[in-house]
């Protein structure tokens, strides 16, 4: 099977305050229509998602994080996940399941945006737009770094580090 290049998945509940920030990021990226980039905006991950992931070489999960202080983008590994039955599937758990069932995983990153309020309703974060813009910028730099010339790579790795599949 010929693999497509990038999959970017925004995860969150659009009516749980800052939980929606990850989805705002991918919706913003969708408007840019970057070549070779597929966008998914989802309320939550399900085991069936592994079947989408395996069609891509690189995947970026974008999620809100209550413990985070700033926008971050880091490589994601699948190891060490033992999740009991639950309706909540983390990106790591999906990767672990994919690796166990197919033996390989795409290069993966997790972009997180600091969440302050997960209360009922839309995000009222006054810095929301800035956070989303920052995450979009980091993701664009990462995609460019993985596809561009070494000159760009230097800059990109300083900013976000390089991804790894393991």
């Amino acid at each position: 099977m010929e693999k497509k290049t990038w999959l970017i998945i925004g995860i969150g509940n659009e009516l749980a305050g800052d939980d929606a920030l990850g989805r705002q990021v991918v919706e913003s990226l969708a408007k840019k229509a970057l070549p070779g980039v597929q966008i998914l905006s989802l309320p939550q991950l399900t085991p069936e998602m592994t079947e989408h992931l395996r069609c891509y070489e690189q995947v970026i999960f974008v999620d809100a994080d209550v413990s985070g202080q700033e926008v971050a983008l880091r490589p994601l590994a699948s190891e060490g996940i033992r999740q009991p039955f639950s309706h909540l599937w983390s990106p790591q758990a999906i990767l672990a399941l994919l690796e166990m069932t197919t033996g390989s995983v795409p290069q993966a990153w997790l972009a997180t945006l600091p969440a302050r309020d997960l209360g009922f309703g839309k995000s009222r974060n006054e810095f929301g737009a800035e956070l989303v813009a920052e995450a979009v910028r980091l993701i664009e730099v990462l995609i460019e770094s993985q596809t561009a010339t070494p000159r760009h790579l230097d800059e990109a790795t300083r900013t976000v580090g390089s991804g790894t599949s393991k």
Binding site: P47, T50, I81, R82, Q83, P84, F85, A93, A96, L97, M100, T101, T102, G103
Partner: peptide, 14 residues
């Protein structure tokens, strides 16, 4: 759980 299943019998899990 499904992870245990996936590591012991990936073909069935997938």
């Amino acid at each position: 759980n499904i992870f245990g299943l996936a590591s012991s019998d990936p073909e069935t899990a997938r």
